[in-house]
């Protein structure tokens, strides 16, 4: 009787590993997509921050020119 290298058990384990691999890959993609969305939304939310900062930075400069 020949030794079967590929036992039914190996198929089952391969199925489980493949399933878990797909789930993990999908999870990574999802977290990446969520991160991109959060960062983009955050960037839009803080879009005016740069202008405000310029204002606050320039104010002391003009104030400093006064005696």
């Amino acid at each position: 009787m020949a030794l079967r290298v590929e036992h039914e058990m190996h198929h089952r384990r391969f199925g489980r590993n493949l399933g878990l691999g797909v789930v993990l890959a999908a999870f990574v993609v999802l977290v990446f997509a969520l991160t991109v969305v959060k960062v983009t939304q955050g960037a839009r939310f803080h879009a005016d921050d740069g202008k405000k900062n310029t204002g606050t930075v320039t104010q002391p400069a003009t104030g400093g020119s006064q005696p």
């Binding site: 039914e8 199925g15 489980r16 493949l18 878990l20």
Partner: peptide, 19 residues
């Protein structure tokens, strides 16, 4: 061979069982 036989019997879960 008996070692391999002992794995038979469907005791190990498939991915679908976890689902």
């Amino acid at each position: 061979m008996t070692d391999i036989r002992s794995y038979e019997g469907g005791g190990e879960a498939r991915f679908g069982d976890y689902v």
